[in-house]
Design a protein around this nucleic acid. Structure first.
Length: 400
DNA sequence: TCTGGGGTCCTGCGGCTG
DNA sequence: TCTGCAGCCGCAGGACCC
């Protein structure tokens, strides 16, 4: 392995993982240069909000993303807290993705701030080596006023670990013959699919490093983790990952959820929230050109116990009124105690099919054309005047 | 320590069907 | 007609990722 400064053997390393450094915070700093060098945290200020992103100055105090904001402020009381501007991050993300796509069409975005690139075609066209393409991307991204880290390897999994390893503002090539040397000393938590729970199981088995997993008997892993997870970890620990970069992968579900500022037990309030979330979900479906066959309602109790209930429809839909009706039925069927306090409700649509295919299916049945046309008209108004410009009457006088 | 919001994937169970 | 079985699908829950 080698840094971009040397001359690493990057032959065959056609996969790049590009990851923006502290993306949301970097965008904020770019737009407010006076804050450069200060600890900055992006996130809500509400009692239940969490850290979305933090500058490296804030991270030095132990702050990290997904940490409860109250705790982050205790750790770093002088941090500047900035409420998130998701629209701005999405706009910068589009610029970044455009840079990637100008290099290669083989771009698989993972989130707003990271993507896999397969540059095998671009190497021939640009007559450059993989590490040089990685550096070219870093140079072009830096012109947007933010930095990124690039991992260069023969597989997605190793490229991603490499980009994490060289953060911030770095480039790391893992040559084909250096994969095991790079992977094996890493802790098991570096592997995809190893979180807190799996990490505890592995620790119980005495497995702490990737090398331990590579040498562990498959049988004991299978007994503890199940066949699929065991095979997955064994393959990764051996450096095997043959997944291709898939541009424009279709999403499998679309949904919305909301945590209440304080726990709620009033069923009317919960149904109002279900209506709002059904509307957001249906708008998401229409924006993606999809209809959904299954509606899932998620209810999280004050105790943090989470209940989900789902129902598959006779015909796919992208209509909020239909989703809302099912969501209410599922909420009622969950049979919660009248005193049960909820901290979160969510609505999700799965079993997605293209809206055009759904329209063909609906042609044989009764078509809820009036609601669909009405909601499409609302989409057009929202597109011009914002999503708050028009909403159901029940939601007009203050929400839950 | 007191846990957001958007997702994906896997497992286990039960019902249905051939 | 009944039984056993396999395969599929729907459903619920959990773990994980960014």
């Amino acid at each position: 392995m080698a840094s971009g400064d040397g001359a690493p053997d990057d032959s065959g390393c056609h996969i790049l993982h590009v990851d923006m450094d502290a993306f949301y915070a970097s965008v904020e700093l770019r737009d407010r240069p006076g804050l450069k060098g200060s600890p900055v945290i992006v996130g809500g200020r509400g009692g239940r909000s969490v850290v979305l992103s933090a500058t490296y100055e804030a991270r030095a105090f132990g702050v990290h993303s997904a940490m409860p904001m109250a705790r982050a402020i205790r750790l770093c009381p002088y941090a500047v807290v900035i409420p998130p501007r998701h629209g701005q991050y999405a706009a910068v993300s589009r610029e970044v993705m455009a840079i990637f796509r100008a290099i290669t069409p083989q771009v698989e975005p993972l989130a707003l701030d990271e993507a896999f690139l397969d540059v095998s075609g671009a190497l021939r066209r640009l007559a450059r080596r993989p590490a040089e393409v990685g550096q070219l991307i870093r140079d072009q991204v830096s012109e947007l006023g933010i930095t990124c880290s690039v991992g260069v390897a023969t597989s997605k999994f190793v490229a991603k670990l490499a980009s994490v390893h060289c953060k911030p503002d770095g480039l790391l090539v893992i040559p084909a013959d250096g994969v095991l040397g790079f992977l094996h000393p890493l802790p098991v938590s570096a592997l995809w699919g190893v979180g807190r729970q799996t990490g505890q199981v592995l620790a119980r088995l005495g497995l702490r490093t990737v090398a331990d997993i590579a040498h562990a008997p498959a049988g004991s892993l299978e007994r503890e983790l199940g066949r699929a997870a065991a095979a997955h970890l064994k393959a990764l620990a051996a450096g095997h990952d043959d997944r291709a970069v898939v541009p424009g992968a279709q999403e499998k579900s679309i949904g919305a959820e909301e945590t209440f500022a304080s726990d709620v037990c009033d069923p009317d309030l919960i149904r109002r929230e279900l209506l709002r979330l059904s509307g957001r979900t249906a708008r998401g479906l229409r924006a993606a050109g999809c209809s959904a066959r299954t509606v899932v309602v998620k209810l999280r109790l004050a105790s943090f116990k989470t209940i989900t209930r789902s129902r598959t429809l006779a015909e796919p839909t992208d209509v909020a009124q239909q989703i809302y009706a099912v969501a209410c039925a599922l909420y009622a069927a969950a049979g919660l105690d009248a005193r049960a306090r909820l901290r979160l409700v969510g609505v999700r649509a799965t079993g997605l099919i293209p809206a055009s295919a759904a329209a063909e299916q609906l042609a044989f049945g009764e078509r809820p054309a009036s609601w669909r046309e009405a909601e499409r008209a609302l989409d057009r108004i929202a597109g011009r005047f914002g999503t708050d410009a028009v909403r159901p009457a029940i939601l007009v006088n203050g929400g839950p």
